[in-house]
Design a binder for these strands. Structure first.
Length: 608
RNA sequence: GGGGGCAUAGCUCAGCUGGUAGAGCAGCGCCCUUUUAAGGCGAAGGUCGGAGGUUCGAAUCCUCCUGCCCUCACCA
């Protein structure tokens, strides 16, 4: 590959690139010169040398890009991007870098060679995982993926392409490779100079094995499937910046295998739940996310406005009362993966939007439910994680049934060292809680139930590795749960504890409408001043109950929390593709100055 | 909302008690037919998150703002 034959005569010699005689200039001066060049002129084209080089390889001579086209290449959006005052077809306001500009130029150069940057399809014969399972004699494969690594050796290049489930090595040899319109050196030069890491390509060829024994596609023909304009993150470290991982999850997914594994786990867990519940005769249903009143839990809802009805509307905080309406409607066993929303504080263990898996089974009580829960979770964990033993925060949690049961009161006694019966009055209990958990705010306003709950959350729960069933919750904590026949102060309720967290909350449902009405009223008196909206919803639900609800046990699991346990993660955002983020002002640009002042001007959304 | 931390090239990171910014990867030019983060040579690439202030001089010190992470409080 000597350089002289393919250097176009109208171009400067390779040794003296135009506009780059910067050695005599300071770094800064050189930079500003570069900026001026990109900002304005289409004059001496520093890139033309490369354009010609590709063309120059052609046996037909030098089919270099015609002057008008070449100008177009530079006048393309990327060529103008440096000048932010101009609003071209490209509305991206982020600071433009040289690499992006160059890639946009490449689109035009490819076009001049008859290669489309964004063709409409590519018929592949195998996924990469399928290809990896083929014998090395396999021929006539067509594979597709994103180019993620490239190792060039002169006339031979190894590269990796990556699809949903697998990365696979390809090899291109200069004298054997082609595109639809070019062959040999020309095609190879296209791959070397106009195809970038991040591009999607399709590759046709035969399998072979390299000297090191790796199954590899020997590429006879490649096709550009999509041009990428931005460089991929660092190939070795991947994307580390947490904020970028959340905001640009696609990059996290491209670069970080553990992220892909985490979301694959999510997929398997959901599939395993569906499979198991379906097999047990549960019916998957969909109930409303947009509701006239938020009920089913004590939480602040997101409020919106229903235009046509001119009334407030809410995003559900739980599917519970709708699923119970279906039980009244005659369903025996229902479940829903319910995307739910709670407008409350953000921290690593709370999301505003999260997935709640709930099921309800008629004619079961909470004991039936506990037996089923052991089976269900053990099956799901084994199917999704491969073993009933989960490693979490350096400890092992074995979900093999049966799991121990521990009474709420005993948990307090054993783990917090407080026996509730020793504090018969609210005042004495309050004093004790103050002593044990001095950092809790609002103790003065808490009733007995909340005080016990605080004690449990602060002093007992963190130490309970589990899995275990926590039973015998005080009635004050469970307005929708059935009162225990044995002890009227308790409910027929259980939680599953694992890793110091509550994974599942379930109970024998309260199905007696008159008692339910009383319990709601107690709650309202205890908690807030019973606003009209909340009462209306409860009325509607009570109406439903009055038609008769069979004995029923219901069950709820926070999917993200469960996934965190299985994925050994602390932050729920790690198991959600796109956690909610405050829009980022575009960082520095002129447009930003306006948005940053105290007028509270509208920000990024316009551009986004 | 309170407290603590972080923000430097597209990415991953250095940058000392203030003296005007550096590496690796990616990109660009060149060499290279069996690599696995290939290697080698060369040249580039930066409003040091933003705005003020202190100073002869600020990535570095101070104040405010923005975003993110952790933590406490509330709810799952």
């Amino acid at each position: 590959m000597s350089s002289s034959p393919r250097t176009c005569t109208l171009l400067p010699a390779p040794g003296s690139p135009p506009g780059r005689n910067a050695q005599s200039l300071s770094k800064k001066a050189a930079r500003s010169q570069g900026a001026r060049r990109t900002g304005g002129a289409r004059a001496p084209l520093p890139r033309a040398g490369r354009q010609c080089k590709i063309g120059g390889l052609s046996p037909q001579g030098c089919p270099r890009i015609p002057a008008d086209r070449r100008a177009a290449a530079v006048d393309f959006p990327g060529g103008r991007m440096a000048d932010t005052s101009e609003s071209g077809p490209d509305t991206d306001r982020r600071p433009v870098n040289e690499q992006r500009r160059r890639r946009i130029e490449k689109i035009a150069e490819l076009k001049a060679l008859g290669i489309a940057a964004y063709p409409d399809r590519f018929p592949r014969t195998h996924t990469l995982a399928e290809a990896a399972a083929l014998p090395e004699s396999a021929q006539g494969l067509a594979l597709a993926g994103r180019l993620t690594l490239r190792r060039r050796f002169g006339k031979l290049t190894f590269a990796h392409i990556q699809d949903q489930d697998k990365a696979f090595q390809i090899a291109l040899e200069r004298d054997k490779v082609a595109t639809a319109s070019l062959a040999g050196k020309d095609a190879y030069a296209v791959f070397q100079h106009l195809i970038d890491l991040g591009d999607f390509i399709g590759c046709e060829g035969d399998l072979m094995r390299t000297k090191t024994g790796e199954l590899t596609l020997s590429v006879k023909r490649f096709t550009l499937l999509a041009k990428s304009l931005r460089p991929l993150p660092e190939k070795w470290h991947g994307l580390r910046d947490l904020e970028l991982c959340y905001r640009q999850r696609y990059l996290d997914l491209i670069m970080n295998a553990d992220t892909r594994a985490r979301f694959a786990l999510r997929r398997r867990v959901i599939a395993a739940f569906r499979e198991t519940l379906d097999r047990e005769g549960f019916v998957e249903v969909t109930t409303p996310t947009l509701v006239p009143t938020a009920s089913g839990a004590l939480a602040t809802p997101f409020v919106t406005h229903h235009q046509a009805l001119d009334m407030p509307a809410y995003l559900r905080i739980a599917p519970e009362t709708y699923l119970k309406r279906l039980i009244v409607g005659g369903y025996d066993k229902v479940y829903e993966f319910a995307q739910s929303f709670r407008n409350e504080g953000m921290d690593p263990s709370h999301l505003q939007e999260f997935a709640l898996l709930e099921y309800y089974c008629a004619f079961w009580n909470y004991e039936d439910n506990m037996r089923f829960t052991e089976k269900l979770l053990a099956a799901v964990i084994a199917a999704a994680a491969g073993s009933p033993v989960v490693r979490f925060q350096g400890r092992e949690i074995d979900f093999t049934p049966p799991w121990p049961r521990i009474a709420f009161r005993d948990a307090l006694t054993q783990y917090a060292g407080v026996a509730p019966e020793d504090f018969p009055t609210v005042e004495s209990l309050r004093a004790e809680v103050k002593k044990r958990a001095p950092d809790v705010e609002g103790i003065e306003h808490m009733g007995r139930g909340s005080l016990l709950d605080q004690l449990y959350k602060k002093c007992a729960r963190p130490q309970m590795l589990g899995p275990a069933f926590l039973v015998g919750h005080p009635i004050e904590l469970s307005p929708l749960a059935r009162r225990s026949d044995a002890d009227p102060q308790l409910t027929d309720r259980f939680q599953v504890l694992a890793g110091g967290r509550e994974i599942v909350n379930a109970y024998s449902e309260l199905v007696a409408p008159i008692e339910q009405r009383e319990r709601f009223e107690e709650q309202a008196a205890l908690r807030r001043e019973g606003d009209a909206e909340a009462m209306a919803a409860e009325d509607d639900y009570l109406l439903c109950m009055e038609y008769g609800m069979p004995p029923t046990s219901g069950w709820g699991l926070g999917l993200e929390r469960f996934l965190c346990l299985l994925a050994d993660r602390e932050n729920l955002r790690d198991v959600v593709f796109f956690p909610f983020m405050r829009p980022q002002s575009d960082g520095g640009g002129a447009a930003d100055a306006g948005a940053a002042d105290d007028t509270g001007a509208p920000q990024a959304p316009e551009g986004a």
